[in-house]
Design a protein around this nucleic acid. Structure first.
Lengths: 154, 154
DNA sequence: CTTGAAGCTCTAGTTGCTAGAGGGATTAAC
DNA sequence: GTTAATCCCTCTAGCAACTAGAGCTTCAAG
């Protein structure tokens, strides 16, 4: 049985985050010592490691919740888990594509900077006048108004 | 002079977002009509377009605040603006690199899925056991505990 | 037995918005 | 001229996924 601090250390998740996961029901309520301190066994440790790993791969807590409930039912077909992972993969691919467009634009901006004064700064000018852009990045594409997922790229 | 709705439409920023920008001081307090409704001229419209464009390129509101205050002083050297853009570019590059690692890992997970039951699901198994990963993505690298910027990748 | 670290609960803050309640203003049709 | 629809106003609260801090208790080492 480990204290929350030890668990934090071994799994690599901060103490308040572990408490937060318990609070939102991702982790079961921990056992307590005589003095009301949380104690963890190997089962919760593994669950936390699972969460940590999935977070590292960019899954949302909601997706992780789903994956965890799937992993509790080993007899079900794995299509659902597969789908979640595929969705995540698509999401990652979309984000990469968008970031790459941003990278191009930023590179253009930075390269063109003549290091003079603000009044002829390419960075400021390009930001102020979208027409100077090489391509469209988020603006005026298929959907002029971007959605949350697009915003989340930052 | 435009109403907030028209401004929203022409610039492509939602009405509550415009009010929010005013509230946090990114936009000046708008003029008001006799009936207390906001009215906007071309100057604020341009400022908003600047903000919109910079947001699209992934700049934080703080960075945008800085860029805006720079653009108000055309006589200053443009090194500061250049630096902000360079920082942003580095950030984008780091994010792309990290997302690409995630993409690889997710692809491996998905490809190996035998479409059997959860009990032999590669997705679940890989998430539960980080040792199965091909490389290290965020875990156990130079710094075991990831920082905010890494998290922000989602 | 004391001291300092680690733990506890609770509230509030972060970023960049978004949603909703409960009202007033404006405009177009009739 | 009025009425209905649509806009706009302010204010508060909520989202994800934590993080930080206050003010307290418990534990482990010396």
């Amino acid at each position: 049985m480990q204290s929350i601090g030890k668990l934090s250390e071994t799994v690599g998740v901060k103490v308040p985050t572990i408490r937060y996961y318990e609070q939102i029901g991702l982790l079961p309520a921990a056992e307590r010592s005589a003095g009301n301190q949380r104690l963890y066994g190997s089962q919760t440790r593994e669950r936390l490691a699972f969460i940590r790993h999935a977070r590292d791969l960019g899954f949302t807590l909601d997706a992780i919740r789903e994956l965890l409930s799937l992993s509790d039912r080993p007899d079900l077909p794995c299509a659902a888990a597969d789908n979640i992972a595929r969705r995540q993969l698509l999401d990652v691919k979309r984000r990469i594509a968008r970031l790459q467009a941003l990278q191009d634009e930023l590179e253009r901006m930075v390269i063109q900077c003549g290091h003079g004064t603000i009044s002829d700064c390419r960075v400021i000018e390009t930001l102020g006048n979208h027409a100077l852009c090489a391509h469209e990045h988020a603006l005026a594409g298929a959907d002029a108004h971007q959605n949350d997922a697009d915003r989340a790229v930052t």
